Amino acid sequence: TGIVNVSSSLNVRSSASTSSKVIGSLSGNTKVTIVGEEGAFYKIEYKGSHGYVAKEYI
């Protein structure tokens, strides 16, 4: 489990790349469930599926 550490919002992406499609966003202080790691990204549970967020903001 981690907490989103941004002042505005954090993009949730379809894969572990900054060039991948943005599938949603999370507000600061949102609790997320981390299910894996891939490079500079965490794989998280997101809306019944999975998404990826940059580690530096969790």
Rank of each mutant, 00 (worst) to 15 (best):
T1V: 15
T1Y: 09
T1K: 09
G2L: 07
G2V: 09
G2S: 06
I3C: 10
I3P: 04
V4Q: 04
V4K: 04
N5Y: 05
N5R: 11
N5P: 05
N5A: 09
V6E: 06
S7H: 13
S8C: 14
S8F: 13
S8H: 15
S9L: 11
S9W: 13
S9H: 14
L10Y: 04
L10T: 11
N11K: 15
N11Q: 14
N11Y: 14
N11W: 11
N11A: 15
S14Q: 14
S14A: 15
S15G: 13
S15A: 14
S15R: 12
S15W: 08
A16F: 04
A16R: 03
A16C: 05
A16Y: 04
A16S: 07
S17H: 10
S17G: 08
S17L: 08
T18F: 15
T18R: 11
S19C: 12
S20W: 05
S20C: 05
K21H: 11
I23M: 08
I23Y: 03
G24F: 08
G24T: 02
S25W: 14
L26N: 01
S27H: 13
S27M: 14
G28R: 14
T30K: 06
T30C: 09
K31C: 11
V32P: 02
V32F: 05
V32A: 02
V32L: 05
T33V: 14
T33K: 12
I34Q: 01
V35N: 04
V35E: 04
V35D: 02
V35Q: 06
V35G: 02
V35T: 07
G36Y: 04
G36I: 03
G36N: 06
E37R: 06
E37N: 06
E37F: 07
E38V: 10
E38T: 08
E38S: 09
E38N: 07
E38C: 10
G39W: 04
G39P: 03
A40L: 12
A40K: 10
F41G: 00
Y42A: 02
Y42V: 04
Y42M: 03
I44F: 02
I44Y: 00
Y46F: 14
K47G: 11
K47T: 05
G48S: 08
S49G: 15
S49W: 07
H50V: 15
H50I: 15
H50S: 07
H50G: 04
H50T: 11
G51P: 00
G51I: 01
Y52L: 01
V53L: 04
V53Q: 00
A54E: 15
A54N: 09
A54Q: 14
K55D: 00
K55L: 03
Y57D: 08
Y57C: 11
Y57R: 06
I58Q: 02
I58R: 02
I58L: 06
